[in-house]
């Protein structure tokens, strides 16, 4: 006996489409917990048309041990994190990392190097970088031609 199964094949097509939709959904909203930093310290970047804010977590780093350099649209953060070893103590656990670090990132636009503001509070580094005036977007007015 011969079966005609047009309904079945269309069902499988529908299943494939559904699977693609689900895959697409997971690509658009990837799990935020699997963020991989490109180096130490990990950085978050916030921006608008006026400037950019870069944040990093540097617990236990002294302000005098952090060096920030800005050239055009590149930002460098370097320094060292020193954890003195206590003489005569026995260590049960050492999870905190120490050493020097250096990282350079490219900003979305050139910034005013003279007006860069950096603060360190409770181990949180916040660098505010205003956008260079010359690179700001210009509003173009449209004339009406009579």
């Amino acid at each position: 006996m011969l079966y005609r199964r047009p309904s079945f094949s269309s069902m499988w097509n529908e299943m494939d489409r559904l699977q693609r939709e689900i895959n697409r959904l997971f690509d658009v909203f990837p799990s935020r917990r699997t963020l991989t930093p490109g180096g130490y310290p990990a950085m978050n970047i916030y921006s608008n048309t006026e400037g950019v804010v870069v944040t990093a977590e540097l617990p236990g780093v002294d302000i005098k041990d952090i060096e920030i350099q800005v050239v055009g649209d590149s930002l460098s953060v370097s320094g060292k994190r020193e954890i003195p070893t206590v003489e005569g103590a026995s260590y049960h656990r050492q999870e905190r990392l120490s050493g020097s670090f250096s990282r350079t990132i490219r900003l979305p636009f050139p910034v005013e190097t003279e007006q860069v503001d950096a603060t360190l509070q409770n181990g949180n580094l916040v660098i505010k970088l205003p956008r260079q005036a010359a690179s700001k977007p210009k509003k173009i007015s449209v004339r009406s031609v009579a």
């Binding site: 935020r32 917990r33 990990a42 950085m43 921006s47 804010v53």
Partner: peptide, 12 residues
Amino acid sequence: FEGYSEVYAEYE
């Protein structure tokens, strides 16, 4: 940061 939107994130 008021007025700013997150464009790149490496840590939470």
